[in-house]
């Protein structure tokens, strides 16, 4: 058995990498999705919005269960992974990233959509009148104008991924160095009645979350427009 310190360090490394990868994917996926949700008049908006928000209300194990089925070698996602990469998704780091993206999606998309909804549409008209098309308007006007909301949403997504447990347990299992994240390591320690180790991990997660949120909220209140 590895030492507590090495175990925590390894789990923290997996956790950090998972949260970072997930956040990067979310920062690419969420802004267009949030923009669509905020602006569309389509009848598909409510069901899509509900789908995105599901992780907010469902037990993570429910989502984890369905993702596990999908990522199994005979599931749709698993089959694609097998065909493309030659390996199934379940119990891999890649599978964990996909699960985390689904799970943290509302935490990034929701705040962005609220921010986008309050945008002054007159500015979009002005950009359009300058000959700037929809894609360039989004990249050059909407995103820079909302850089604070983007950072806040990213931090929230990151912190939320760090704290995830149920989905990881279902689709990632507990493979050290691959899918064993801090929250799982904490659970292990408790099961082993190693309360000292559990304290160390729990305190680490608590302090990390508190510090990150404090700095984010403070930064959000500072002068810079946008």
């Amino acid at each position: 058995m590895t030492s507590i310190g090495a175990d925590i360090a390894q789990a923290a490394g997996v956790t950090g990498l998972l949260a970072l990868t997930t956040t990067l994917f979310l920062l690419v996926l969420s802004p267009p999705l949030a923009w669509w949700i905020a602006r569309t008049a389509s009848k598909w908006r409510p069901p899509v919005e509900a789908l995105v928000a599901l992780p907010l209300v469902l037990p993570p194990t429910v989502i984890g269960f369905y993702l596990l089925l999908a990522m199994a070698p005979d599931g749709p996602l698993g089959a694609i992974a097998l065909a493309v990469a030659g390996a199934p998704l379940a119990f891999t780091f890649a599978g964990l990233v996909i699960g985390s993206i689904v799970y943290s999606l509302p935490f990034v998309t929701g705040p962005l959509a609220s921010a986008f909804r309050t945008m002054d549409t007159h500015l979009l008209e002005a950009a359009s009148s300058l000959g700037v098309g929809p894609a360039a308007r989004f990249l050059r006007l909407v995103l820079p104008m909302h850089r604070k909301a983007l950072v806040a949403a990213g931090v929230l997504g990151f912190a939320h991924t760090v704290g995830e447990f149920g989905i990881v347990l279902m689709i990632g299992g507990n493979i050290p160095g691959e899918t064993r994240v801090l929250s799982i390591a904490l659970f292990d320690r408790v099961e082993m009645l190693d309360y000292a180790g559990a304290h160390a991990i729990a305190a680490l997660l608590l302090v990390f979350s508190l510090v990150v949120l404090t700095f984010t909220y403070r930064w959000l209140r500072q002068g810079v427009p946008g």
């Binding site: 950009a127 300058l130 098309g133 104008m145």
Partner: peptide
């Protein structure tokens, strides 16, 4: 759509982009 029409509009309210300085606003055009 407006961006495909070769027409420039000056609005009553100037509608400058608040996150850009004057030079940045001009660069947009």
């Amino acid at each position: 759509p407006p961006y495909q029409r070769s027409v420039g509009t000056v609005f009553q309210d100037s509608r400058l982009f608040p996150h850009l300085d004057a030079r940045g606003n001009l660069a947009f055009a």
